[in-house]
């Protein structure tokens, strides 16, 4: 008996991600959930801009490639057009928390019945490691070579905390994929976010703390440690909003 095999929720195209980048794990969790919930054949993935731009090659369902930051707006159109389909966005922190802030906040405010998978690795990966809206104070990046100076460029945006204040949003949780236990919890959260959509409960966003070994300048193993020691301090894990409580 196979206890672990590749999900049918992914195509067999090899990921283009760097060695040790946890995007691959998050892709797999989303894909497994789509397969397990039996919604793969009615799912529409909205790919964003950044490292995950090619996610339309990997999710084994229909897909639309959106402009930078616009995935929640594209998802809104697709979902309003096809309310019985499962529509989700897969976005990084640059895409969602900088250029796409308005689209994200307003999709949440409308309680748009979509699922947002938000991958936070505190850096712009695809363009080579620039400061992201989520980069940590003092974090060295290509565009903060002396460390993020909060007096000059401000503080990181805590997306889950921010969206927990948006009245319309249904479900907001932050998870991480730095160890097996957390990966399993992340999958549970992602499953809940999709189940919410199936149950027509509205906007769910799962923020997933992820690594970027290449642009962090660390080995894959050290990246996991850096996530544990630094990311989680700034971005504590947990459920930030749950309007489905009491529904069960």
């Amino acid at each position: 008996m196979e206890v672990f095999k590749k999900t049918n929720g992914l195509t067999d195209a090899p990921f283009h991600y760097c060695p040790g980048c946890t995007h691959g794990i998050i892709h797999r969790l989303v894909a497994e959930v789509l397969e397990e919930l039996g919604v793969l054949d009615r799912s529409i993935a909205i790919a964003s801009v950044g490292c995950s731009v090619f996610s339309y090659n990997y999710f084994n369902c229909d897909a639309i490639q959106a402009a930078h930051g616009r995935a929640p707006a594209v998802a809104t159109g697709a979902k309003r057009s096809m309310p019985d389909n499962i529509v989700f966005t897969y976005q990084g922190d640059g895409d969602l928390a900088a250029i796409g802030t308005a689209e994200t906040v307003h999709a949440a405010a409308r309680n748009e019945n979509i699922t947002v998978i938000f991958v936070n690795n505190a850096i712009y990966g695809m363009t080579g490691g620039q400061m992201a809206p989520t980069s940590l104070p003092n974090q060295v990046t290509q565009t903060s070579p002396y460390g993020r100076d909060v007096t000059l460029v401000g503080y990181p945006i805590k997306v889950s905390e921010m969206l927990s204040q948006v009245e319309g949003a249904t479900y907001i949780e932050r998870v991480a994929v730095d160890n097996v236990k957390n990966i399993k919890n992340a999958k549970k959260a992602i499953k809940k976010a999709f189940q919410n959509q199936i149950d027509k409960k509205g906007f769910s966003l799962i923020e997933v703390l992820s690594t970027c070994p290449t642009n962090w300048g660390k080995s894959p193993k050290d990246s996991l440690l850096w996530l544990e020691e630094n990311m989680k301090k700034n971005y504590p894990l947990g459920v930030f909003k749950d309007r489905t409580k009491g529904d069960e």
């Binding site: 529409i44 959106a66 616009r70 707006a73 594209v74 159109g77 697709a78 979902k79 308005a102 689209e103």
Partner: peptide, 12 residues
Amino acid sequence: SAINMVIGVAAT
């Protein structure tokens, strides 16, 4: 956002 919502519908 409005034009991107149009894209979402048009894609379907």
